[in-house]
Computed example of a mutant assay.
Amino acid sequence: MTHSLVDEIMERLVRSYEAARDPERAVSAAAYMRDQFAFLGIASPARRALDRVVRAGLPAPTEEDLSAVATACWERKEREYQYFACDWLRAHVANAGPNFLLTAHTLITTKSWWDTVDALAAHVVGGLVARHPQLRVEMDAWVEDDNMWVVRTAILHQLNYRQETDTDRLFGYCTRQAGHPDFFVRKAIGWALRQYARTNAEAVRGYLSQQGHVLSPLSVREAAKHL
């Protein structure tokens, strides 16, 4: 391969995405996201099919490759490129070391909205912390951050941990941010608790009985939805 991996991926990606551009669908997709981002107008199933072709035959990426490709995708105007980066990082998070958390932080705090932040929180940051437990202390700092998307990430990073969930951290984070003024943080609290209730409903019931009075009605409603 004469190009670097990032060059090869971006050339394939731009070529594939441009050929699939749908201006009419792009308008509706942008409207759904409150016109914060431009879109190519590629539906998710079609985009993921294109992504599989783009990734075919490529070597395993290094941590540097992961950072370079994600950065290149974040620099593109259309949102689908950021979706590709989130899916690619999710697939290769095992190749990243603890220092990759710095890159994840940059992605979370740039072009921030729930669609990319949640994917990065649950599948990238969550994967990093699971593989590098020393990063738990970073989550303790993130949950107190001034940036609401960083706070949301800390609350959601254990979303897929199931029996491996650190309940002291989960419940502690929810209590510490119970009065957060932003909808997206209060919603994340309810979502994190509801998800953990699928694994340990009694623990979530117990937490709500003891601390539900400090949570927002939104958080409690979301948490108890399936209890």
Rank of each mutant, 00 (worst) to 15 (best):
M1K: 08
M1S: 13
T2H: 13
D7P: 00
I9K: 00
M10Y: 02
M10I: 05
R12Y: 12
R15W: 09
R15P: 06
S16C: 10
Y17S: 07
A19L: 11
R21D: 04
D22G: 04
R25V: 13
V27S: 11
R34M: 11
G41L: 13
G41H: 13
I42H: 02
P45H: 00
A46N: 10
R48P: 03
R48Q: 10
L50S: 02
V53H: 10
V53Y: 02
V54Y: 05
L58Y: 10
L58K: 08
T62G: 09
E63H: 03
E63T: 09
E63V: 02
D65A: 01
D65L: 03
L66I: 07
L66H: 03
S67H: 12
V69L: 01
V69S: 02
T71G: 04
T71C: 06
E75R: 15
E75Q: 15
E78W: 13
R79C: 00
R79Y: 13
E80A: 02
Y81Q: 01
Q82W: 10
Q82V: 08
F84R: 06
F84D: 07
F84V: 04
L89Y: 07
H92F: 04
V93H: 09
N95D: 12
N95S: 14
G97H: 03
G97E: 01
L102M: 12
T103M: 09
T103W: 06
T103V: 14
L107S: 06
I108N: 05
I108L: 11
T109E: 14
K111Q: 04
T116D: 06
V117R: 08
V117K: 01
D118E: 10
D118P: 12
A121M: 03
A122N: 06
A122P: 07
A122M: 13
H123M: 03
H123P: 00
H123L: 04
V124E: 02
V125E: 04
G127E: 03
G127D: 02
V129G: 06
R131W: 05
P133E: 04
Q134Y: 09
V137G: 07
V137D: 15
D140L: 14
D140T: 12
V143H: 13
V143K: 09
V143T: 10
E144T: 14
D145A: 15
D145V: 03
D146S: 15
D146R: 14
N147M: 02
V151N: 08
L156S: 07
L159F: 15
D166W: 14
D166K: 08
L170T: 01
F171Y: 14
Y173R: 00
T175W: 11
A178M: 09
G179K: 13
V185K: 12
I189F: 05
I189L: 14
I189G: 03
Y196C: 10
A203H: 02
V204T: 12
R205K: 15
L208V: 04
Q211H: 15
H213G: 05
L215S: 00
S216Q: 11
P217N: 10
P217K: 11
P217M: 12
L218E: 05
R221W: 13
R221K: 15
K225C: 06
H226Q: 15
H226F: 15
L227W: 10
